[in-house]
Write a protein that binds this DNA or RNA. Structure first.
Lengths: 250, 250
DNA sequence: TTTGTTTTGTTCAAAAATAAACAAACTCAA
DNA sequence: TTGAGTTTGTTTATTTTTGAACAAAACAAA
């Protein structure tokens, strides 16, 4: 029973069962738990399974990337700080795009009394701005109930009909090395569609997301014009972004 | 049972049930309440659920403080009667248009569990069907805040892209002499656009509106195929409509 | 307000899992 | 066969996770 043989069996078993414990694998492979752990470290490093304490799991079960939708509750004070900066950029008469990110949602409170037009695919944003001075243009198409937003082909065609001064979009991950990344194709696609139709794209991104990567890389840093983040961003990271030519406000 | 397992089960259970208590989760996961609390802290931090005192709830439920509310209906029991009749006409797999009338809104409760597609310009209907089996297609365009609906040129273009089996539309006034009438051009125009794209048009109209006229006449009786009204309609009026060739259900 | 109940966070000790260190066994050429 | 290099198993130390106990905080009812 060599490593190759064990490796095959481990991956196969994990795929079949979804998850398994180190002790079970040791019994199954007639080997010690230490050896199993060493194998698991290698397999996890090459991405064939997800290492958990006490065992391993199928990657697909552990990551559930599609779920990270409504992050309203996370880091609200940072997000409000960012949105205040973003609101300062907006002028009367502007036509702006707002996407369905949780950070972007919090921009609503700062623009309630501005005479501007907002084009958005986010239903919470529409609800929030319903009693405001803002003229709302809602993107049509099939409703994604999980994200409470409209995505897809028809939505993108709809957006293609409008031209905006500015766009405010959220992002799941951003890194100097790989650019922008997202947890879902839908959101990535919508972000691209919005960027195409806007003169100036502002990326709203709280500092916890700087230098993180999500599963789908979808655009280089050049997609946006201005990165707005909070004042808790590490100064060396901020400096690195500025050195890379990014216009960063914080 | 490690953290990854518990996490999956907790998120799944919360999503299914809407909310749950710490003690229930402890029993379900065969672990202590302390552990459940620690798990909930982590899950709430990553935005997968909303922490409440004594348990947790779905994020979307917690953030839906801003709901679209339909005006309190007049004659609710008549309208529900009509909608029950209307719902009987709908079959699995149908694609249906629903407009933004208050009568049509009450149809939602009867179609929650049907596997159909609803195309609508009404925001209260979208909100109501958000947690249902129904696939929703939202009509895009400029939002009419007063009516909580989308009207106008872009909206009509959007609707022109879809073809539906059935359409359920409300009406402000109807008379044998003058046909259909409305209180606003916007709604009249939308009704016409919907009728163009539908195989069969059902007019939902409580009996208090029969033989009334509003300021804008916009279509003859031939616009619709079936008139659904309630059982309080005077029998001579019903007879007159049937004599005039109208298919009437009540 | 005060009182009593429930829920929560913190601290601590026990248990489990892991990593590190080292010895034994095995591989494979020369 | 020898011996360098690798893999494996065992022991030990370290880290992580867990549950219990208890104090603090939040809530509800007088």
């Amino acid at each position: 029973m060599n490593f190759q043989h064990r490796k095959r069996l481990i991956v196969q078993t994990v795929d079949e069962r979804g998850s398994i414990e180190v002790s079970e694998l040791a019994a199954l492979l007639q080997t010690s738990e230490m050896t199993v752990r060493r194998d698991l470290v290698q397999l996890a490093a090459s991405g064939l399974l997800y290492r958990t304490r006490g065992g391993a799991m199928k990657v697909s079960l552990a990551t559930d990337t599609h779920r990270f939708a409504n992050k309203i509750a996370v880091n609200p004070e940072r997000k409000d700080y960012i949105c205040q900066l973003a609101a300062n950029e907006i002028q009367e008469g502007d036509v702006i795009f707002m996407d369905c990110g949780s950070t972007v949602f919090r921009l609503c409170q700062f623009i309630r009394n501005k005479r501007i037009t907002v084009v958005t695919n986010s239903l919470p944003i529409v609800a929030e701005l319903m009693s405001s001075e803002v003229t709302i243009n809602l993107v049509g198409g099939e409703v994604d109930k999980e994200r409470q937003a409209v995505h897809g082909l028809i939505a993108e065609e709809h957006m293609a009909r409008y031209r905006a001064n500015r766009a405010f979009v959220g992002i799941d991950g951003i890194s100097l090395q790989h650019g922008l990344s997202a947890n879902s194709e839908k959101e990535a696609s919508t972000t691209l569609a919005i960027a195409r139709q806007s003169d100036k794209v502002y990326l709203l991104c709280d500092s916890s997301k700087l230098e993180t990567n999500k599963y789908l890389y979808f655009a280089p840093l050049s997609l946006f014009n201005v990165l707005i983040t909070d004042n808790e961003a590490p100064s060396e990271v901020v400096a690195a972004y500025r050195d890379a030519g990014v216009t960063l406000i914080n």
